[in-house]
Each structure stands twice: as C-alpha cells, then as structure tokens.
Design a binder for these strands. Structure first.
Lengths: 345, 345
DNA sequence: GTTAGCACTCGTCAGGGTTGAGTGCTAAGC
DNA sequence: GCTTAGCACTCAACCCTGACGAGTGCTAAC
C-alpha cells in the first residue's frame, strides 16, 4: 500500500461523514446534507474541502452536478484511520448463537451452518473454507470388505475428520484377514502423516505383500485428501446482494455470482488474502479481480484446536458498513472456531 | 390434471410453433412470423386460430397489440402431447462425461459434480438430493477413543455411506476395551437397521452396561442419519438464470434465489414431485409456490445400486427448452446413478 | 479563513408525438 | 364454409423536449 495523502482534522471528519452517509443511503452525498450533520461549518466550506478530497482521489463524483462518494482509496483511508468499529449488537448475537447451539456431527455441517449464520449476520455473501489439515496425522484406520477384490478404507484423521476410499486388493481376501491387517497397520501408522508413512520400514509378516500394497494406496489417498481440503469453499447469501441498489444492474450481478459459484476463483481470491493481521479488508479493485471491482471482501481466520485454521469472511458491495461487518465476521469466526474445535475434540 | 381441451391438427401445429418460437426468442410471437414457418396458411388464418387458442387458455397476450406466448396450460399441452424430445447432442455429452471420468471418493463429491454438470448441460439451476437410505443397514462399525469419557463412533452403512458421531462414555474406558466392544457389537448388529437394533436381545458379558448404553446412542444416531439424508439438497447454476431476459427484473430473481438458497423450501418442492413416471415436469404455478410462478421444474430420479434413489433435476424459466432439458436431465441422472452405484459398490 | 450569494451544469422525470408490430373484423374469393 | 386480403385500430417502445432541482464552482464580502 502506498503512503496515503495525510488529511487534516476537518478533512478527516468530512470524509468520515461522507462514508457514513453514502453507506446508509447509497446516493452520492452533497455539501448541504453534510452541513446538517457537521453543523460546525457551512455548506460552502464543506464544498471547498470536498473539492480537495476529490483532487487527492479520496472522493469521486459521478457527474459534475452530483454529490460525492468515496473512492476505493477513500474507503481505504476510512478503514485504516477513521473507522470506529461497532460492537456486535445483541440482536445479531441472538440471531447467530442459535445456529451453533445445536451441535452438528461433522465439520462440513458446522461450516455450512457458519456460512448461513454469517450471511445473515453480515447481510452479504459469506465464504467459508474448511480448516486446513495439511499433513494431518492418522488416528485410526479400518478396512471393510466390499467385494473379493475391493476393500473400503475408513480413515479417522487427527481432528476426527473421517475419510473413506475404496482400495483394490491384489488377491481375494476375507474380512478376517482385512481386520488383522488393519490392526497391524494401526499399530504402525497411528500418529503419522503421509510423509511419515512413506518413510516406514519395510513390512514383514504373513500378509506383507498385501499390506505393502494397501499402504501405498493409503499414502496416495492421504495426499489427495490434503490437496482437496484446500479447495472446499462454501458460500451462502447470494440473495443478500439482490436488494442492494448497486446490483440493480444485472450485468454486474452476473459477474459477481459467476465468481462466487466458481470455486477456483474463490480459492484464488482467498489465498491472495494476507491474513496475518487478524482481519483483512480488500476494497474494490484491491482484490485484483476485475469482476469484483464494485465489491469488497472482509476476511479473517478461525482457529480450531491446535492452530488448525480456516478462512471465513464475506463478499459484499464496496458500500458495505465496514464498521459493523468486521466485528461480525470476527464474532462468527470465533464461534466457528469454538464449534470446530469442540467437534475435533 | 384436468382433461385438456382437444385441439385439431392445425391448432396443434400452431401451438407447437408458438412454443418453439417463443422459447427461442423470448418475445411474444405474432401471426406474421408464424406464417413464415407454417407457409401452408396465411397470417390471417393463423390469427383466427391464435384467437381460439387464447380463448381456451393455451396462449396469453401481454397486451392487445402484442403477439402470443404460451400459458402454463399451453406448455402443459405442449409437453404432454406435442413435444418431440431431442437427443442429447454429442457436444453436451462431451461436456458432461469428463465430470464423471475422475472417480471421486465420496457420495457427496459425486453429487456436487452432478450439480455442476447438470447446471452446465441444462443451462439452468440444478438440484440434486442425496440417495435416500432410509432404514439402511449397518455394514461395519468401529469405536475410536477421543478422551476418557468420549469415543468416536464410525459407522459404515450399507452402500458404503460413512457416518461419524461422538458418543459419551459412562466411565473412563481405554481403546482396548472399545475395540473389544466394537468387535462384539459388529457381530451383533451387522445387517440390521435402526429398527432391527432396537429389537436385539439383552446384552450380557463383561462390559454389558457400557455396551447397552452405547447401543442406545448408536440407535439414536442412526435415526438422526435417516432423517438428515432427506434434507441434503445441492444446487448449482444460479448464474444461468441471469442471462435470461425474464429475470432482468431483479425482484423476480430475488424471489427465485431465495427459494433456491433455502433448503427447506427446496425439500418441500422436491417431495411434492410425483416421480413414479420417469420424469416430472412442473410448469409455472403447478409447483404451487408463488415465488416460482415464472419457473418450471424438470425432475427425475436416479437409481443407485439396489433401488436406492435420489432426485435430480433443474429449475429454470418457464420458457425453457423442454424438449432438450428432459433428455439432458435423464442423461445426467443416468451418469450419477452409475457413479453412485459404483462408489457404493 | 469562512461564508452568503449566484450563475451554471446536468441527471431525472413527466408529457407528448411518432413509429411499428400486431391485432380483430369485414368482405371478397375459392 | 373455409380462407385470405385489406384496413382500421391498439398500444408498448422510443425519442424529443422542457421543467425541475440537487449540487457544484466561483466570487466577493465579512
């Protein structure tokens, strides 16, 4: 980010008032209505200041005889220096909490609930990624006979993520043998991740050949699991975009929905976020995606158990109430983290 | 359905032409343009016939000096008596098939892929439900220690659906005992559904009390699984609605998207479908949902393995190309059935 | 430095006339 | 008796116009 143009006290106050007004009404705001709120100065004075703020690029004017609205840069200045975050109102808490009151069985359920809750709370499109479990370790495994030459692998991963996969058998094998192999493998692989498993010493014993073969398939499957987890992104709340005047243009709406429905694009977007600083706000073109030039993203991480983390956030109009949305995203993130942590024990 | 008003050959031909034209252009069609396609009669003759078709309710006129468009009833007549289903073109097959070429691991993955594939193939919103597995039987179960007073139940159900749930233990129990109990339970419950399990004879033995308690929890969980499965509905392709002129009105779009995003409403819709007859087409208000009065549904079932079935279909504008959509839904349904069947072995 | 006053700009909206697609009706033709 | 050419009529869509008003920039006075 470039060094922002410094603003004196009054210009800051005016910029803040413009953001507040425009966020509320969606209509470019003029000097007269500002003069009502900021009774200290006349509309003429404010007009002069507005002109300066336009010159330095914090405000834009759709046409000469229109009021001003904040530019991406103006919002950036607002978010960085002027915004007073608002507490999450009790009404919203009461709306969110019930979602997490019923304890769902699987992680995926929690994430889906989180998406719905956040969409409601922030009145925007919510985005939720699965908690990253890269290189996660095995807690337990089991083999169930499917047919003569197929067995179902059931993996319980650290964090109680359960994954299943059909494995091929090199020779007809009955359930007794499979159970024996499962017991043997359990003793060997518990606590290992894919990398650790590939460094295991040679297997010996009665069913060594079969066991070796299965182990290879298991390692391959775990690698696939690792890769898949990154791309799971849930979303909800597309309906929330529709009642906003800026999306009255169907063209624009279409572009945004296309991005939201295309998981690849969302993944790119979310991985571009720099989430080391608690909350990341990407305003308008800052996301680097032309389709989202009129949209902003507010993202944060949730932590579940020992530092396993996923991303959660919202995508909405640039004209969103940043002062409200940030805290709400954090609030839901905290709830999700707790729920996921609990589900993973 | 009421008895439709019978139509003579020429009226049928004209109605069919109106549907074809209107589906293609989205603009009410006039007698002159029909006279080009149906060169046998002059525009005046066609005009007389159009008047009759309007009188009996098969066509409607947005205003006096406009052309005609099919009413819900008109589409119903078309679909029931006039429509010639079109083969799924090779281009569409080539578009759908790759989705099912990579064999995904879980049922949920297949369903998601199916939703995406169908959304592409039918250029509408796709809807997919999980295969019903009501009263499904247990194939295998396992218990993994989580903490002193908690164990993770891993259930492999018939059809290789894997479900997990944390269970409470009445006393601290270690993995060895849990494994022993799991082995014992496996012997007892394999092949039983929830109902069968509740009729099991009293358990006796070393860990009888604990085992009884766990069994109760397992039965409760299976009942929950049964209920949940019905409500899982995936959708994709909301973007496809946006480029259709009838959804240029954001109001309308909003209502439709609200229904699509609300799983309860979708569930009600799908359960209302009468799917004994291969494919079910609900036109406009036939769905009984006011929000969807300008939409149609084309639904069918897919079969996976031994008669386990889910629902798959599309939701689109009433002005959809029924002759193309039906076969495409069936085509994807068949692919999904095959894929699910294979995944369930 | 601030502000009242004023001329100016430009989007929005309502009114009015024109256009053209499409109709219903009638009377003539086969 | 069915078909069709002709014609008057209807009405949405479009464009043009002028009034309106929100909002500006500039200037001069305080």
């Amino acid at each position: 980010m470039q060094h922002p143009v410094p603003l004196d006290q009054r210009k800051q106050q005016i910029l803040k008032a413009v953001v507040a007004d425009y966020t509320r009404t969606g209509v470019p705001v003029g000097s007269a209505s500002l003069a009502v709120h900021l009774a200290t100065w006349s509309s003429a004075t404010i007009r002069n200041e507005l002109a300066t703020l336009s010159e330095v690029g914090y405000l834009i004017q759709p046409h000469t005889s229109a009021g001003r609205m904040p530019s991406d840069l103006g919002y950036r200045y607002y978010v960085d220096f002027l915004m007073d975050e608002e507490d999450v109102p009790p009404a919203v808490r009461r709306q969110v909490d019930p979602f997490f009151a019923v304890l769902p069985t699987g992680i995926e359920d929690i994430l889906e609930i989180a998406a719905t809750a956040l969409a409601h709370a922030a009145d925007a499109v919510s985005l939720v990624t699965a908690p990253r479990a890269l290189g996660v370790r095995v807690k337990h495994l089991d083999l169930v006979k499917l047919s003569d030459l197929q067995a179902l692998l059931v993996l319980v991963l650290e964090g109680n993520l359960v994954r299943q996969q059909a494995l091929n058998l090199t020779a007809p094998t009955d359930q007794g043998v499979l159970s024996a192999i499962a017991t043997g493998l359990n003793a060997a692989v518990v606590g290992l991740n894919a990398a650790g498993m590939s460094r295991l010493p040679e297997v010996v014993g009665l069913h060594a050949a079969l066991e070796r073969d299965l182990l290879t398939q298991i390692i391959a499957f775990m690698t696939v699991c690792d890769a898949q987890q990154d791309t799971l992104i849930l979303h909800d709340g597309v309906r929330n975009l529709l009642h906003q005047p800026e999306f009255g243009d169907v063209e624009l709406l279409q572009q945004v929905i296309e991005v939201v429905e295309e998981e690849r694009m969302l993944a790119a977007l979310i991985s571009a976020a720099d989430l080391d600083h608690g909350i990341q706000i990407m305003i308008g073109r800052e996301s680097g995606m032309a389709e989202l030039s009129r949209c902003s993203l507010v993202l944060t991480t949730y932590r579940a158990g020992a530092e396993r983390r996923g991303t959660i956030g919202v995508l909405g109009s640039t004209r969103m109430a940043y002062a409200q949305v940030g805290p709400r995203v954090r609030y839901v993130a905290q709830r999700v983290g707790r729920a996921v942590g609990r589900a993973l024990s």
